[in-house]
Design a protein around this nucleic acid. Structure first.
Lengths: 131, 131
DNA sequence: TTATTTGTATTATGTATTATAATACAAATA
DNA sequence: TATTTGTATTATAATACATAATACAAATAA
């Protein structure tokens, strides 16, 4: 698995790795029960230190996206929590995004349209034709 | 102006200040043409260093939220750019939020509902009764 | 013309975060 | 027993953040 890491970004590398994995889960490219590459492998593939990858896995585990399977490695979680803590954090982040959108002249319809466009790229029914 | 700064947050203080101001603009609490407090004043009011506040103002200016008026200080921008750069960044942030929402079991309708709820708290028609 | 107010620059210090490096540990399978 | 996996530990280095102090420069007010 290679991740398009931006070494000049203000986002730390371990968070870029975490975000990439979360986006892959959201898109369905990584499914419940699937294993992630070993931290040594992902580190080697992407030219970063294994401790950096390990830190990404640690955050993913603490937030419930992955489970650590001793000997086999990190596995995508099946259980979806809908936990209240996540919704609180989501709410805060959405508040800031929506406020900055309004300040930048985007109205509600434009914002909602952007969201719907993104959801549609994550539609699990990607096969052409019959669902 | 006092800002509820969280000194233990992983979000740097200067970004918390910036975010607070962006949210106030989005909510209509700060309007185009209005002046922000002087950096010395805001620093003093909030128990932080003026260079920290200055850094927040610098980011706000570079992103187009405020203009620096020599002698009078920082003023909320009137011109809304709808700039393409902002939409690109918004898109990236929404992608991550939507992906993590899906991974956490929130469906599109729940997500859109959260957005609409937040927009409704920013409805400029806040006066009771007739709009 | 001087005083004042404003944001910004500069230099410096200290702390925290991030990333790396190397080595080793412990669990669990092959 | 060997191997694979994530994690722990110690250490180093670079960067980011926040503060502190002083001063500058622009632009108004007096």
């Amino acid at each position: 698995m290679t991740i398009d890491l931006d070494m000049t970004s203000s986002i730390p590398i371990y968070l870029q790795i975490k975000n990439h994995i979360v986006i892959s889960i959201g898109k369905g490219e990584l499914k419940a029960g699937e294993y992630l590459p070993a931290v040594r492998q992902l580190a080697c593939d992407n030219g970063v230190n294994m401790m950096t990858v390990s830190k990404a896995y640690s955050v993913l585990r603490s937030e419930g996206y992955i489970e650590i399977d001793r000997r086999h490695g990190a596995k995508i979680s099946g259980t979806k929590l809908k936990n209240e803590e996540f919704k609180v954090r989501l709410s805060c982040e959405l508040l800031l995004l929506i406020a900055s959108s309004k300040a930048n002249g985007l109205d509600k319809n434009a914002f909602i349209q952007m969201c719907e466009n993104i959801f549609s790229t994550m539609n699990p029914q990607k096969v052409q034709g019959i669902v």
